[in-house]
Amino acid sequence: MNEAPAVAVANLTVKFGDFTAVDDISFTVRRGEVFGFLGANGAGKTTTIRVLCGLLVPTAGRVTVGGVGFDTGEMAIKRKVGYMSQRFTLYNDMTVAENLAFIASLRKLPRETFLKRRDYLLGFISFNRPLDSYVRDLPGGIKQQVSLAASMLHDPEIVFLDEPTAGVTPAARARFWALIRELAGQGKTIFVTTHYMDEAEQCDRIALMRTGRIVALDTPVQLKRQVFPGPLYALDPRGKIDFARLQQLGHDPEIEYFEPYGLRFHAAFRDSPAAERLRAGLEGEFHVQPIAPTLEDVFIRLVEGNGP
């Protein structure tokens, strides 16, 4: 497509006093893309989103969202975007209908438009409870779907979802992601943060932030290739391995990556001679098997800063 990107960020920096929350980042998001924004807690994800929603004026850098920037005024940005924040979304002591009407009035939607959008969106999320249900009585998964609908009442081009599925059940998370994929199919751009790596796997592209910077940006498949160019192994202990031995393996300079995964360990060696030499030794203690890296491996290696 030769349309302008949904989001374009060039040299964005945000400072709070002496603290640099976002440090000179640049990236673009294509229209219709599901863009995953990952990073440890406190890496600067929410700060970036708040800028992209027109809620926070950047210290430096250029940002355009749906083709408009801060030079047009932040109201222009706010009209383009929907935002589902990680903390607050709906008023618990108002009904679903009241919450939606309230948001529509903040957005100054004409009544006709509001009612049409409301019915369409509630149909889209398959909401089958009374409209006068209090939000506090909704199960977590349903509440989160109503929040999604609320963030889309004004039919934004781009939706920012900040940890939308934190704390809901795996089944509810799966339903929510089906909705996200469907929205992207309709041409909406989805910008989403998550700590669940199975969700990150469903994004078209992923950016990974560490202490205010973007340390990687690519498709899930490419990220795995980049971060683990050599083979990765699962080490399944044959018996009890004592703690000192594990520490020794963790500090072996020829083992570049060594992380516990439940009962097993994932390991990557420095190079193939090292792999051959070590594998032979490890076979006595572990059942060693080559495996495909997961995004969790990618995340840990990049965020802990020992990636290639």
């Binding site: 990073g39 700590h195 995340f299 965020v303």
Partner: peptide, 10 residues
């Protein structure tokens, strides 16, 4: 650890 990033979980 629900909703916490992979490193913090570890």
């Amino acid at each position: 650890t629900n909703g916490v990033d992979p490193i913090s979980r570890r």
